[in-house]
Design a protein around this nucleic acid. Sequence first.
DNA 1: AATTTCAGCTTACAACTGTACGCTAATTTA
DNA 2: TAAATTAGCGTACAGTTGTAAGCTGAAATT
Lengths: 209, 209
Amino acid sequence: MTVFVVLYVYMSRQEQKLQTRQRIVDAAFSLLDEDKSLSAMSLREVARAAGIAPTSFYRHFTDINDLGLTLVDEAGLALRQLMRQARQRIEAGGGVIDISVDTFMEFITDNKNVFRLLLREHTGTSGAFRAAVAREIQHFIEELSDYIVLQLKLSRAIATMQAEAMVKLVFSAGVEALDSDKSSVAETAKRVKLQLRFVQLGALQYSLR
Amino acid sequence: MTVFVVLYVYMSRQEQKLQTRQRIVDAAFSLLDEDKSLSAMSLREVARAAGIAPTSFYRHFTDINDLGLTLVDEAGLALRQLMRQARQRIEAGGGVIDISVDTFMEFITDNKNVFRLLLREHTGTSGAFRAAVAREIQHFIEELSDYIVLQLKLSRAIATMQAEAMVKLVFSAGVEALDSDKSSVAETAKRVKLQLRFVQLGALQYSLR
DNA sequence: AATTTCAGCTTACAACTGTACGCTAATTTA
DNA sequence: TAAATTAGCGTACAGTTGTAAGCTGAAATT
């Protein structure tokens, strides 16, 4: 005897819609691999990947652009979560630079498409997207700057410059990491850590001058 | 009385073809403004801008991709010329950092689309393009590294790290400069100069440690 | 002077795009 | 229970794309 048990998971209309919306977002992220950019992503392609009719897309987003902004937002959210994670690890002990870089590199390895999105749109063809990504990076810089002022007792002005330099170096290293295998990533991480040390030493030296 | 003088500038077939090819390249560069990327550039669009029939494009390039590689090459060439220019200016006297940054910022301001191409393709959707741009940047780093070894007498290993950090910081500043007006560019330049000084001081400090 | 080469053209076609329109069936509201 | 709302679908259309095929006239070669 075989018994079929059908589980009905109740979902209100609103919840169903939200779920479909998320399917679209996920589909879009999954399309964003090595050789597909946001601007090259067609509405029909996304719809296909999400398993809906092309025209149903409009029930959730007005535009492909609208979807794009959502993706950038989600990516920014992921970045901020990443920072929280790094802070926790730092409080648990360990060199700030080492832990931050390692956390970042882990993030990139595990979320290539999220980081790719940020990088591409940072220099992409939509001014709105460029600005949105720039804002996310600015958040990053400001939080790091706060940390530097508190921990290293540097002036706010110098701390900001130091933080900016560090974030940009880490992001640049991230660019390399996207196209590298695991061992190369470790090597890239090592190099950027040294460079961050240069910046740290230099900023300190400069403020003692 | 009106006299029409027709000037016949003789051009061999080969020269004509080369001229058309250059028109295509120029047209492509001119299309690469704020909101058009290489991958979003259609063959027909380029042909239209170059004033030729779509199918005539194939007499010069096998692909849009082929054209892309040519553009990256030309951009790399422009970068190398830029460096030569910077070296000349430095020999004429002045702070190395100041002159290098100023030269670079001038270049970006005068050749926005060339720099945009490099930036976009550095993180773009074509692995071949990404690699090509990475090579150009590597050139840049190596030449700067040579300079540092010679002038500042640092070890090759440390000089390379310093050079890499500096080039990446300058390129990052370039990203900002693309979306800025003239006065903001000056401000960005000032900030990156300070950051470069951090790196320089830090690398020196580190090697004396 | 006769022949070959070839840069650029026109025409043509199948594939794909965004999106307008109206239908359906199920949920939500009254 | 009756009426209203709406997520998702199918059909349809005009516009754009890459590129295949073959022609033309001028330049280059013989």
